[in-house]
Design a protein around this nucleic acid. Structure first.
Length: 661
DNA sequence: GCATGCGGTACACAATGGGA
DNA sequence: TCCCATTGTGTACCGCATGC
């Protein structure tokens, strides 16, 4: 409805005014064009609603029965399509008594609209008056001239004070994906709006077409500051969150624990993941694809694992904003992206993994939703390996008796530590008095639960151990020590993931700061892939290879194989280049002694931004990287290097970028 | 919480090119 | 050569993601 015509110059005077034009369509009535004139040069939402207020008042008075309003405008972020306007829209439409209200934004480059026509007519009237000798020096004189003119356009004068009186909302929550919004809808609550990427009017906008999302301006995001100086406050916040999660914890009862035919669909486990505190931040999880599950080996024969495998968690350091960022207090990184991994115990070969994106964000239709997260995680990872006779080692976050029994039924043994507060764990495990080195074991069918007293009480579970004992590995200056075989096997085989992390530690590709979290995760996976390759190589060749020499050899092999395909410039600056062929000079040019005019060996050509370059973008201009990085100047360009896909000014940035290292 | 970088848009003005 | 429409460029600003 509204369209703003920018500032104008009048009869030699440099004073500017603002015209805010529009056309109103009322059912069964002729369209009414209107224009508000103001000396204020503000064009922000506060000004827009300052201009709209007298217009709305006029129409409400003329047509009191109106209770529904639809606004149409283009979508500049400086004016209409922005959070402040959204906020004022919800506020003002309620104040003005509209039952239903929508605001739709035209797509960019939509062409001229009716409101532009009104603006053109106004400017023509003013121009004609100036040509007849009238001097229009300010907004008031322009309004007077327009009022005297023979026009059907309804005119309003808006003072600067009336614009200042409009509330200017501060510190309000931005609406996610504002740039993609094409319609906002007012709700019963003035602080809550709906928005969607496509407009619809099948129920005066109050429909559920195109899945409108709800935005509440009242809610504030939960933020936890990570400032070093504020560590005490941070600890308090973490402690508070942990306590609240404990209070909210629900212990479910097993539906049928006596049944012999135990199935995962019938069992429910206690949820006790109180070591983790998830930080919710500004990013909504809906924007994140949670299907980052690495299951390439499910049906492949790439690697035959040895019998002992283990599942554990790993944390990739990430301090930036991320909705599924995890805090794990006993990890070195403490804060980052948590991955749950299945590795071979002996070598650390990572067979599968998935990124933990929170309890609610990792749905898997294969498992009942009643299962707790730790059990679902185990089943998700081990599922392709069931019925193949593996022995799975896990720590106490994953283990519980019913899971162990289920795995045993699927020909998979299970060994690990156990939390005494899990369902079906005998109370003796935590209550019995034991001295250091003593242990107590309870049997139930195939499952044995043991309490071993070391420096502190360690509950354990196994599906193939008994009470047999073994001699612990020799330690200098320590007497030989007998321990339950269960404990010895657990200590021996649980460290697969730690072994992998230990081997990767000196070669952390992801150590360099990354702007995006997914790039950091990608680098980490690349690193794990190299380690996996080495393990695979060692097994296939049956010879030991130092990790460093393996990596160096890998780099050399890649260079030997692919260097010919690398553009000339990159080869010349690469000290490893051994295969440079100068094909840029023709025989005729060599004979003439002049440099060749033919750039046959170059792949770097300046091309215009095309639809392929601008995939996902709506404009065909980008900021020049060279101007931005080297000269610290923001300069838009329409050219891009065809090969590098980097935006560069044609002159001189394109040449400088490709010649100065 | 703040700073920074990047993508995106609007707007004003300059440059360009075709037709009379 | 002039006029006018189109295209290109610079600037300002906002939203969002990320890092510290």
């Amino acid at each position: 409805m509204a369209k703003e015509v920018q500032s104008m110059h009048f009869a030699g005077s440099r004073q500017q005014i603002t015209l805010h034009t529009g056309v109103a369509y009322v059912k069964n009535e002729k369209p009414i064009s209107f224009c508000s004139v103001s000396p204020s040069l503000k064009h922000d939402p506060q000004a827009i609603w300052g201009h709209l207020e007298p217009v709305i008042f006029f129409f409400k008075e003329k047509y009191p029965a109106i209770n529904c309003v639809h606004f149409y405008s283009d979508g500049p972020t400086t004016q209409y399509r922005q959070k402040k306007n959204f906020w004022l829209f919800g506020e003002k439409t309620k104040e003005d008594g509209f039952v239903q209200a929508t605001w739709s934004f035209f797509e960019a480059s939509h062409g001229k609209g009716a409101a532009d026509g009104v603006g053109g007519a106004i400017k023509r009237i003013l121009d004609s008056r100036v040509s007849y000798g009238e001097d229009i020096v300010d907004a008031k004189s322009a309004f007077d001239v327009l009022s005297k003119a023979d026009t059907t356009i309804k005119l309003f004068y808006v003072t600067e004070d009336s614009i200042k009186k409009v509330e200017n909302p501060q510190n309000i929550q931005p609406v996610p994906n504002t740039m993609k919004i094409h319609q906002i809808i007012a709700t019963d609550d003035k602080r809550v709006i709906k928005y969607r990427s496509l407009s619809c009017f099948c129920a005066r906008g109050a429909c559920e077409c195109f899945s409108p999302k709800v935005h509440n301006f009242k809610q504030k995001p939960i933020k936890v500051s990570c400032k070093k100086s504020d560590s005490r406050t941070k600890k308090k916040k973490i402690k508070k969150e942990i306590n609240s999660s404990k209070r909210a914890r629900k212990i479910y009862k097993e539906s049928d624990t006596t049944s012999e035919d135990t199935d995962t669909s019938e069992i429910q486990y206690a949820d006790t993941d109180d070591d983790y505190t998830s930080f919710d931040d500004e990013m909504t999880t809906g924007e994140i694809e949670t299907e980052i599950v690495y299951e390439t080996n499910r049906n492949s024969k790439v690697k035959v694992l040895s019998e002992e495998i283990c599942i554990d968690e790993s944390l990739t350091l990430w301090k930036g904003k991320l909705s599924f960022k995890q805090y794990i207090k006993n990890k070195a990184a403490r804060l980052g992206i948590k991955t749950l991994e299945l590795c071979e115990s002996a070598t650390g070969y990572m067979w599968s993994f998935f990124v933990y994106t929170g309890k609610e964000n990792t749905p898997d239709p294969r498992f009942p939703s009643s299962l707790n997260m730790s059990t679902k995680s185990v089943l998700k990872l081990i599922w392709p390996l069931l019925d193949k006779g593996y022995t799975l080692f896990m720590d106490n976050w994953f283990n519980c008796p019913l899971l162990a029994r289920f795995l045993k039924k699927r020909r998979t043994d299970c060994v690990g530590t156990l939390r005494p507060n899990r369902q079906n764990v005998p109370s003796l495990v935590s209550l019995c008095k034991l001295q250091a080195g003593q242990f107590l074991a309870c049997h139930s069918g195939d499952v044995v639960i043991m309490a071993y007293q070391d420096k502190k009480r360690v509950p354990l579970i196994s599906t193939y151990h008994g009470t047999e004992q073994g001699l612990a590995p020799f330690k200098p200056h320590m007497p030989p020590q007998w321990k339950p075989q269960l404990v010895l096997d657990y200590n021996k085989n649980m460290g697969g993931i730690d072994r992998k992390d230990q081997m990767l530690e000196p070669y952390l590709l992801e150590r360099k700061r990354c702007v995006k979290w997914n790039m950091k995760l990608f680098k980490r996976l690349l690193n794990v892939t190299i380690l996996n390759s080495r393990i695979h190589f060692e097994k296939s060749c049956n010879e030991r290879q130092l990790h460093l020499s393996f990596r160096l050899q890998l780099v050399q092999d890649i260079i030997d194989k692919h260097l010919d395909q690398v553009p000339r410039y990159h080869r010349e600056i690469n000290p490893c280049s051994r295969h440079i062929r100068d094909t840029s000079v023709s025989r005729a040019d060599r004979d003439s002694g002049l440099p060749s005019r033919r750039l046959t060996d170059s792949v770097h050509w300046p091309v215009r931004f095309s639809a392929s370059h601008a995939a996902g973008h709506r404009t065909l201009r980008r900021k020049c990287i060279w101007c931005l990085k080297r000269n610290h100047v923001s300069k838009l360009t329409t050219f891009v290097c065809e090969y590098c896909e980097v935006a560069l000014c044609l002159e001189p940035c394109f040449k400088l970028y490709h010649t100065i290292h």
